[in-house]
Amino acid sequence: MRAAEDTTMETTNDQAAGIPGGTQKEDEKLTSEAAIETVGDITVENPRIQCHNVDVFYGDKQAIKNVSIEIGRNEVIAMIGPSGCGKSTFLRCLNRMNDIIESCVVKGDIQLDGNNIYSKSTDVVTLRAQVGMVFQRPNPFPKSIYENVAYGPRIHGLVDSKIDLDEAVENSLRRAGLWDEVKDRLQQPGTGLSGGQQQRLCIARTIAVRPEVILMDEPCSALDPIATAKIEELMDELSQNYTIVIVTHSMQQAARVSKRTAYFHLGELVEVGDTRRIFTNPQHRLTEGYITGRFG
């Protein structure tokens, strides 16, 4: 694990030193394949996150190919695309979650508020506290519901007293739309909840840390329409102050919650743009094919 992290750091250090595009070999690879040119405007006025020429490899296999995109302040951006196209992989680059996977190597330049998050001076721990993540599959800790939510505030020392902590827990659970269901059994294990409840618990757990950017990997795939509506409401509310990146397979959901949409295909960013435009008037034939349901 350590080793993997070290190598990532080294490679990204090169980039920080001003060698964009990775190694020689890397460049050859890119030119030899006919890379897709992203359609649409990848830049935004007030960027929070800027990604340039991001490549991700799992061992020899390249999962993300030369993706560049900017994500704006207080923006909700949806990432769509067929299964296995690298949405989760890309999302996990944004808070360096891929460091944990030994074989995974990230190349390119990713900046949060103008700072390269893969540079040596970046503290991964602070980064992840700033950029929270809700995972594709609910993964509550084998602790009580209360402890699950209190975990983040505790490790970051966000609260001074037990009362504050109680309040933070209740507040987070309320916003995740779970409070009424669990308020009488806060001390029971979080793993005993239903799948949808677990997912909302994980969302509560994430927002309890008060991150500035929230990455959501299919947060609603296990939820019923009512819970989904609650989560979407929450996203609306959060987007006042936060930046949200959501991966979803539901195009309706993307249309409902997001301002911009990015379409991925086989590790490449095919098209990005205003959500309404993407859905009504896709420019790239791959995007069009996916949206009209021809494949995916």
Binding site: I100, R128, M133, R137, F141, I155
Partner: peptide, 24 residues
């Protein structure tokens, strides 16, 4: 997934081990 959950909340490796992995 358990480790990722913890790291994703900004826990350090030792916090993750002490508070999540060992209890689990």
């Amino acid at each position: 997934a358990m480790r990722e959950g913890s790291y994703g909340l900004g826990a350090t490796q030792s916090e993750t081990i002490r508070r999540v992995i060992i209890p689990a």
